[in-house]
């Protein structure tokens, strides 16, 4: 019967996911700002890995937007592909790839991220998982060889796929050969930290330029687009736990994709909790899982899977930390 129809379905009103703050900040504005905040890191990766890195990022962004428009057209939804969210997904996906991957990888990754992870779940605001990270995880499971062939920074202008200049990531060396071996690649511990901070090392495009990522993150924090709760708890948990288990906390922070993940992906409005306390719990969970994977898992890095696993708990966390309604008696 019509009267029993879900009001939302009947088009009477639309329920949307928070945040509901109306401060004149539109979705496109936020998305473009976050993308802009990633530009220094993207620029640094192009400087290190050459023009090929730029092309991978562009392919990733263009295909993401194209898939968004295509799905929306096919499903008859309003086309919002230009709102910058697909562009941001594409950019983040691209930054999670090594610069040496073939060009069809970012295209497949975008298709999985946008069509399966985002649009099939209902589009912006309804997806459970971070689309860029699902795209990366999908590629990791499908093309492990491409996804673990890292480039040593070389600043080449060539677009051809380089074959000889591959090197392991710091975390990969740490896992395979141990701390001392890793240290021997640098002129001492201090030099290692500086080199890692500057991003002079093998890795995915977006994770190498830690200093540029921090610069972008600081801007977003200053503008209030992200809050400190998740990134800080996330990073602190990783550092503390690593130290507890006898590792090098600074190395744990500066290596791998922790900074990129904590500031730019564990802060995605849609897939993380909205309440501050829940965010702290989210960051804590991410940190614990990351350290567990790094120390005990088969992969050297666990940021991606940690965030994805915690994404599952987002609705639960928000519910668990929900403020009591006025007059609501505590349940015995």
């Amino acid at each position: 019967m019509d009267t029993e129809k879900n009001p939302q379905e009947a088009g009477l009103f639309r329920a949307s996911v928070g945040p509901h703050i109306s401060s004149g900040e539109s979705v496109p504005h936020i998305m473009w700002t976050v993308s802009a905040a990633l530009m220094p890191a993207a620029g640094l990766s192009v400087y290190y890995f050459g023009l090929r890195a730029l092309l991978i990022l562009v392919v990733s962004m263009v295909s993401s937007v194209a898939f968004e428009a295509l799905t929306q057209k096919l499903t008859g939804a309003k086309i919002t592909a230009g709102d910058g969210s697909a562009l941001l997904t594409g950019l983040l996906l691209g930054m999670n790839l090594p610069a040496s991957v073939p060009f069809y990888l970012p295209i497949i990754g975008s298709a999985v991220a946008i069509i399966i992870t985002k649009q099939l779940f209902g589009g912006l605001g309804y997806n459970i998982f971070n689309p860029a990270l699902i795209g990366r995880a999908f590629l990791m499971a499908s093309f492990p060889r491409f996804m673990t062939t890292w480039l040593v920074p070389h600043g080449s202008l060539s677009l051809a796929r380089p074959d000889a200049v591959t090197g392991a990531t710091p975390l990969g060396i740490l896992k395979e050969e141990g701390y001392d071996k890793l240290l021997s690649h640098f002129a001492g511990r201090h030099d290692m930290y500086v080199q890692l901070l500057l991003g002079h090392r093998g890795g995915a495009m977006g994770e190498t330029g830690v200093i540029a990522l921090l610069f972008g993150a600081a801007y977003l924090l200053y503008k209030g687009y992200i809050t400190w709760h998740i990134p800080v708890t996330f990073i602190a948990t990783v550092a503390v736990l690593t130290a507890v288990f006898g590792g090098d906390p600074w190395l744990a922070i500066l290596s791998g994709g922790l900074v990129l993940g904590a500031f730019f992906m564990a802060t995605d409005y849609v897939t993380v909790p909205q309440l501050k306390k829940a965010q702290v719990a989210f960051g804590l969970g991410c940190g614990i899982i990351t350290v567990l994977i790094r120390l005990e898992g088969g992969y050297p890095e666990g940021v991606c899977y940690a965030i994805l696993l915690m994404n599952c708990f987002t609705p639960l966390l928000d519910r668990a930390f929900k403020a009591k309604k006025f007059g609501e008696a505590p349940v015995k």
């Binding site: 497949i108 399966i116 099939l120 999908f138 499971a141 499908s142 093309f143 492990p144 491409f146």
Partner: peptide, 22 residues
Amino acid sequence: GNPLLIMVLPTGGFFVIGLLMG
């Protein structure tokens, strides 16, 4: 070439069944 390895992993099974169900 390089097939999508994920499809022969359990994850791929869920993807395929979900999409075929749809």
